[in-house]
């Protein structure tokens, strides 16, 4: 089972984390990197590491005992400029993801783990670029997906992610909430029988019976009722300020469905900043990501945390193996 790792923006921590994980023996032979071999070779020299890098054109050409790279040949050694925002490295980072997604759709790799792109850099060549999640969903031609954050304790999925808050409120519809409950159920069912799902309200106190907003009555409660009918173990809407405590400290729920980006992201970062894995659910392929950015300020200094790549790879392998066994 080959797993793709896209190395991310060359100026950021992605390629460095890739090299250091390989050197630490944390990248199994089943990993194939999508990126630029020239950057990885120059980076290994910069970090004074000896990493055997094997450039291939197709993922099936990988060999044992090397860090295999599907080499897109977009950047040269001279383009390794730590911490510098560049149009070419931003465009290259996007290209690695595009190629890996196509290979995953063809079945050449069992899943993709993405290292960070720098949005500002990528937008220099693609002004409409919002993020990995949106790009991959678009390449897969899927509208019905959701961003999920996973830790050992709980999974949190989102009805919307990278949209303005006023737009996020408009996206709280019965159909969409129902779809995200179903996607969450389907994903968690891979390793948890009858997963317990809690759904957040949108408004303070989950609307307090219509006193502070009616989206709960109009959309969220009916969506929950419909998914209960089809046998999903789901309940709510619950006030968003108490449900995380119930889910995590009292282990009452396996997943929480959130109505907007910060409703899920803020508590997850307060609970478990280091180990959260970002998973896109609802795609025809497996895709996970580390939950941090390019960190230009510390890139290529040998200090970036490498744990999150390990977490993201492990979760991707788990999803991929369940998918294969079905």
């Amino acid at each position: 089972m080959r797993m793709a790792v896209t190395m991310g923006d060359a100026s950021g921590v992605g390629p460095e984390i890739t090299l250091r994980c390989y050197a630490n023996g944390e990248l199994a032979n089943d990993v194939v990197v999508y990126g630029d071999a020239a950057i990885l070779r120059a980076g290994a020299t910069l970090l004074k590491m000896e990493v055997p890098i094997h450039a291939v054109e197709e993922p099936r050409q990988v060999i044992q005992g090397s860090l295999n790279v599907v080499d897109l040949g977009l950047l040269n050694a001279a383009d390794l400029t730590p911490g510098i925002l560049r149009k070419d490295s931003g465009a290259a980072a996007r290209a690695y993801v595009e190629r890996a997604t196509h290979d995953a759709l063809k079945g050449e790799v069992a899943g993709i783990v993405t290292l960070p792109v720098n949005k500002e850099a990528t937008r220099m060549s693609d002004p409409d670029f919002i993020g990995h999640t949106e790009l991959i969903a678009q390449l897969c031609d899927v509208q019905n997906y959701s961003m999920m954050l996973v830790t050992d304790d709980v999974a949190v999925s989102h009805v919307s992610a990278h949209v303005p808050l006023t737009e996020a409120i408009r996206r709280v519809t019965k159909q969409r909430v129902r779809a995200v409950i179903e996607l969450t159920h389907k994903t968690l069912s891979m390793d948890t029988e009858n997963p317990r799902i809690a759904v957040c309200g949108l408004n303070p106190h989950a609307g307090e019976n219509g006193l502070f907003g009616d989206e709960e009555k109009k959309f969220i409660t009916p969506a929950i009722a419909e998914t209960v009918v089809v046998g999903i173990n789901v309940s709510g809407p619950y006030p968003a300020d108490t449900i995380f405590h119930q889910a995590i400290h009292h282990n009452r729920y396996d997943a929480v469905v959130c109505m907007y980006h910060d409703q899920g992201h803020a508590p997850m970062k307060l609970f478990d900043f280091e180990s959260a894995v970002n998973v896109t659910i609802g795609l025809p392929i497996v895709r996970t990501s580390v939950d941090h950015g390019t960190a230009f300020d510390i890139a290529w200094k040998g200090t970036a945390f490498t744990n999150s790549l390990d977490h993201a790879l492990r979760y991707a392998r788990k999803l991929a193996s369940k998918r294969h066994s079905v």
Partner: peptide, 10 residues
């Protein structure tokens, strides 16, 4: 409301 309350209660 929830932006502050979530943070405090977590």
């Amino acid at each position: 409301h929830d932006q502050g309350h979530i943070a405090i209660k977590v």
